[in-house]
Amino acid sequence: MLKVAVLLSIGRHPASGRPRRAPLDARALELALRLPGAEIHAVHAGDPAEPVLRDYLGMGLDRLTVLEIPAGSDPVPALVAHLKALSPDLILAGRCAEGGEDSGMLPYLVAQGLGAALLPDVADLSAGEGTATLTQALPRGRRRQAEARFPLVVSVHPAAPEPRQSAFARARRGLVEAVAASAPQDGFIGECEIRPWRPRPKRLRLAAGGSALERLKAATETKSGQGQVLVRPTADEAARAIYEYLVEQRVIGTS
């Protein structure tokens, strides 16, 4: 039977700042719940009394293991030790947490600790015998398929399927199982100076060189095209011109 571990974290609502179900981790859990016949182990490292954890239980989990570590400590050693004992085939996690350092390093550190392969930005997956077939989401809406052997760590992209709603009764019924774990204090964040984010002014792409008048024009005028204008061509001429331009600009493939 396919053994899947899902790493869950607590999110932070962007407007209110309240704790919430982390959207990417919820997508990871959704992908795990869609795998037929998978044995799912959900793991969270943090405070077992956090009420938001029940939202994950409400998605269809019976139990959720919480490695009890103090706030501000490094969860990676505790997670690696727990997952070594569990030895799952597949480990799913959102690609970046929200509310902490948000460096997106956790899946990589877990994969490094377990000696597992890692595939980032996964939007869909199916598991076979000893391998998984994964669909990666790339920029500009492109998709790529790849195969990887177990054990495998997968980080989940926002393009993965929407997570299901949390059912209140299941959330009440589910069991949060606290496990004592040791975690070293994370000194790195203490070294950093932390203050509220202030949006920066957008950087203007100022043209260098040329006369002052040309630079003023470049900075103040909306960009206007420099291309050719065809006035009242026949329909065929127009069609050919458009098509040639698109091919020349590599918008339409020639092969």
Partner: peptide, 8 residues
Amino acid sequence: ARGGAAEM
């Protein structure tokens, strides 16, 4: 950091 709310 912190979901975009803080600067480190």
